[in-house]
């Protein structure tokens, strides 16, 4: 069967690529040799014994890393869903808002006791920084979702310590028999401050979207609040500069764009809000945004 495939490839491929194919073929053979070798190696050789140990150790590390990547992806997806859910609040009545918020709160709790707990258990007794790159996208998305929730609920920025406190889990819940010995034991996902800040930078993107949506719903108060909030965050990020890492520089640029959009929105409301009917305003607004975007692109 494999021969058939190769024949096809030879027939289809241009002649000058033959060399390349041959090389690939050789690699494959190498692979076969390797698997044979694995069975044939003289296990009594000292060097084989030594490297077997290395193999185990490396495989264990790689497996753990992959598992964490998976958990992180799940965490990202769930967090995105929570954010979408929270966007639905815009322009709702009081009671629906309450309902959506409590729904989001339940989802966040589920995420903590499910996915994040799993991550915490996997990271137990490990150097978190070794595996940080596998989980940091998930963590940032999570920070974004939770901080968005807190903003909508209490109109404030959630603190770093508060988020970290949510990520400490006590072991006694699921082990009833060993309860006594494990009572004091706890597992946690250490939240790096950098990831917290990057999550907050993402939050401003959501707030910008919320601002545009709320104008669409005819709410002319909210954009000003949001603008003030984002301005505060932007000021702080500017003061950090790019010392915390390369990612920050990129985030600051996006932040600036979001802020500009919101500021322009506020400007439009002030200048033309009184003369244009509310339902028309959103059109004016969208036009302006697309114009601005074009300008940004040309610059």
């Amino acid at each position: 069967m494999s021969e058939d495939k190769q024949d096809k490839k030879v027939a289809g491929g241009p002649p000058w690529k033959k060399g390349g194919r041959g090389w690939k073929h050789k690699i494959q053979e190498d692979g076969d040799d390797l698997s044979k070798l694995q069975h044939q190696v003289d296990e009594s050789l000292p060097c084989v014994k030594v490297f077997r140990k290395f193999q185990e150790e490396l495989d264990a590390k790689h497996d753990k890393y992959e598992n964490l990547v998976k958990s992180s992806r799940d965490l990202t997806i769930e967090s995105k869903r929570i954010i979408f859910l929270l966007h639905r609040i815009t322009g709702c009545k009081e009671e629906t808002t309450e309902k959506l918020l409590s729904e989001a709160s339940i989802k966040i709790k589920e995420l903590q006791s499910g996915n994040l707990r799993k991550i915490a258990e996997q990271l137990q007794d490990e150097d978190i920084f070794y595996y940080l790159r596998s989980i940091s996208p998930g963590l940032q998305e999570y920070v974004e979702a939770v901080s968005f929730y807190h903003y909508l609920k209490d109109n404030r920025l959630v603190g770093f310590e508060e988020l970290q406190a949510d990520l400490v889990f006590h072991e006694e819940n699921d082990t009833s028999s060993k309860e006594d010995s494990l009572l004091s034991k706890q597992v946690l996902v250490p939240l790096p401050p950098q990831d917290y800040m990057l999550g907050i930078a993402d939050l401003t993107g959501e707030l910008m979207r919320k601002c545009i949506n709320s104008v669409g719903q005819g709410n002319l108060e909210e954009p000003f609040q949001l603008c003030h909030f984002i301005q505060n965050i932007y000021d702080a990020f500017l003061s950090f500069g790019n010392t915390p890492g390369r990612e920050f520089t990129r985030k600051i640029q996006t932040l600036r764009q979001s802020l500009k959009k919101v500021e322009n929105a506020c400007y439009t409301i002030r200048v033309r809000g009184s003369e244009i009917p509310k339902h028309m305003l959103i059109h004016v607004f969208n036009e302006e945004i697309s114009e601005n975007l074009e300008c940004d692109l040309t610059v």
């Binding site: 070798l37 084989v48 030594v50 193999q55 495989d59 790689h62």
Partner: peptide
């Protein structure tokens, strides 16, 4: 060749 044999045992990323 011993070294090579050893490294071939590893599953490298």
């Amino acid at each position: 060749s011993q070294l090579d044999l050893g490294f071939r045992l590893l599953n490298l990323k």
